[in-house]
Amino acid sequence: MKRRTLLKTSLVTGVIASTGLLIPGRVLAAYPKAAFESIDIPGALTAAMGSSEYAESGDIKIKAPEIAENGAVVPVQVTSSIADTESITLIVSNNPNPMAASFNMHGSEAFVSVRVKMRKTSDVLAVVKAGGSLHAAKQEVKVTIGGCGG
């Protein structure tokens, strides 16, 4: 019994130590696991940012293909001209877990470009957090071959 307790303790210590060595910021930063595991959009937004209410905004531009032949690799680019954009969150509405990514700008220009997987034809939603409120824009991407199969 005692031996088991000891093993457990040392294992925990080991994990913390190695994480700390890899990226010191990791211990402090909070990965929004619940938001990524959420199966609906309001749940994901609430878990990530405390609210799922947003105002549609023309100051957020999404650049994504109208038709994506390969859902495994869909380029998406988001630019926000909303003052003091703190973060940009990317949502793919019809994915099993809609939240795809979240970017904290740290004062950098509000622009990100990534490639995402899309299961099927869906809206791509970009949610911007600025000045304590949420703003969003969306664009539909038609997917010919889904990006989640093997």
């Binding site: 930063a29 990965y31 929004p32 990524f36 495994a72 690799v73 869909v74 380029p75 680019q77 793919v92 994915n95 877990n97 939240m99 795809a100 990514a101 979240s102 970017f103 904290n104 700008m105 740290h106 004062g107 950098s108 220009e109 622009f111 990100v112 470009s113 990534v114 490639r115 995402v116 997987k117 899309m118 990006g147």
Partner: peptide
Amino acid sequence: VMEAYWGTAISKNPYLSFK
């Protein structure tokens, strides 16, 4: 200058651009 959190929907061999 930039911090990104990703889920499983980011494509294989990820590409990221920022300013």
